[in-house]
Design a protein around this nucleic acid. Sequence first.
RNA 1: GCACCCGUAGCUCAAUUGGAUAGAGCAUUUGACUUCGGAUCAAAGGGUUGCAGGUUCAAGUCCUGCCGGGUGCGCCA
Length: 571
Amino acid sequence: MLPDKQILRRLQQAVSAVLPEADLSMVMVRPCPDPKFGDYQSNALISLAKARKMNPRQLAENVLGKLDLSNICEKVEIAGPGFLNFRLKPAALAETLTAAARGEHLSFDQSSPPRTVVLDFSSPNVAKPMHVGHIRSTILGDCLARTLRLLGNKVITDNHIGDWGTQFGKLIVGWKKHLNAGALAADPISEMERLYKLVNAAGESDPRILDEARQELVKLQSGDGENLKIWREMLALSQKQFDEIYARLGIKFDFSLGESFYNDRLKSLVDELVGKNVARESEGAIAVFLEDQPQLKDKPALIRKSDGGFNYATTDLATLEHRLKTWHPDEIIYVTDGRQQLHFQQVFGAFKKWHAESQTRLAHVWFGSILGEDGKPFKTRAGETVKLADLLDEAEERAFNIVSEKNPSLPEAERREIARVVGIGAVKYADLLPNRQSDYVFSWDKMLALNGNTAPYLLYAYTRIRSIFRKLEAERQKMELNPAAPEEISLAKHLLNFGLTLEAVAGEYRPNFLCNYLYDLAGKFTAFYENCPVLKADKAMRDSRLVLCDLTARVLKKGLDTLGIEVVDQM
RNA sequence: GCACCCGUAGCUCAAUUGGAUAGAGCAUUUGACUUCGGAUCAAAGGGUUGCAGGUUCAAGUCCUGCCGGGUGCGCCA
């Protein structure tokens, strides 16, 4: 068991010995903000004492009387208003990391008990290009899936593709009247996009075209053979595009159940909600009113339009029901743009009225927009949305130019491969680094910068470690870590916090915690690297430092992998 | 009008149940052994955390008001 967990467990036991009724979930242990205080701290006793009108320092004394950590910690100190400061004994640090070096752990534990989590993210639309608007959901969702899996949870990823909606009326009209087969073969997404825009524009001046589109939609939804065939072809062409993008991003989904999958359930679902008095007629539509929530008082969720058609909320409720029945998850996480907050409040609220007994946690993990350097929504120079494929191309191209400049002697194929990893990694890292709820300004230069908190910087730190092992000639004698220099100790202790960081990422759905942890790790490694020779050190010290290098590389690699970023041995 | 989010160094961003002296990078200034990879490192300056109150042992974080910006608000998804 990792030291922080041991401290936590025994501290909780000691607290419960002194205050048997105390809520132990409030008792937490975290890394100290400043190493001068110690390695770990707990401030739980301050609030526990305040709530009971006790003196916090006296309570701390009493708890310490029941707390024996002498096998792993120095004497526990009470500081300030009642902080407990824990400092690891060097032997405990060395022992834990030596076990890690033997492959027994990598500074994190599996969650207990494992939970089943459904993750809904990415959700592109059929017949449209994937654009920057999809990138955050896709990358954030994938990272959360990886994090939760790493911690031992059962994760089901489901891509809720937009494959069923009013846009297909216009698309089918365009397909039937204006399709350019050659263009479709060359670039199907652009051709479908062209058709949609064409019919959309025509519809603005000629209402008969809109009427035609509505009729084609009705035919499609009532199962017309020809329209279904066209729809299926559009689906297949789009799926091919999605697959290409996801392959480049290294992302896989367990399921891709689009909106159309739930079509057959929508009518009966609305009937059921009306029958159960969850929903009722209002101004010709059917709505679920959520009076019990003040913010939603005047914001009912519409589940059937006055023309009999169904809404986004209807499909989402059917989807929710399907996921619960099929996978029995402990939690369902939706990763979408922040503009959908109201929508998810409505869907979750409506669901609670429908299934008050459900224990499944519903989480809307939302994120801010990507802005251009002018502070407005990120667009191309021509003012169009930036296509994801173009963005990835440019990232790789820019990375290729940098690699070629820095390392002209490498064969081109190798430079291409490095550029792929660095370019894609840089895009992902730039997206995961900001607090997800902030809007952020997209900048190529910042993203591919060689220093600062960027993917290339982390990858560079990794390649330096790999380089040491390439140069290593003599046999390693001992797999044992004995950090002595301050830079070694600081690095070693930071390695232990990988697990706490992963738990924070999973708990708050914030990958940027992991980015910042890895950046600190790379920084601490570099400080070590500058001050502590490895290959030139004498034998015992060299072996110990090799262990430290190896563990750092493994945590860096695993951490980057959790962010969805590959590594390279040279760059 | 109502609701949600945001306002932190010149710029772009951090800050883990409220927790100890608000941290990075860029830019600026100064410095480093022809290096276990200089795509590096060390150091300096730069802050009344939009404003005003309040709660607390402790507030960038919570509450109230104000100012400024963004987003959403019944038949799009």
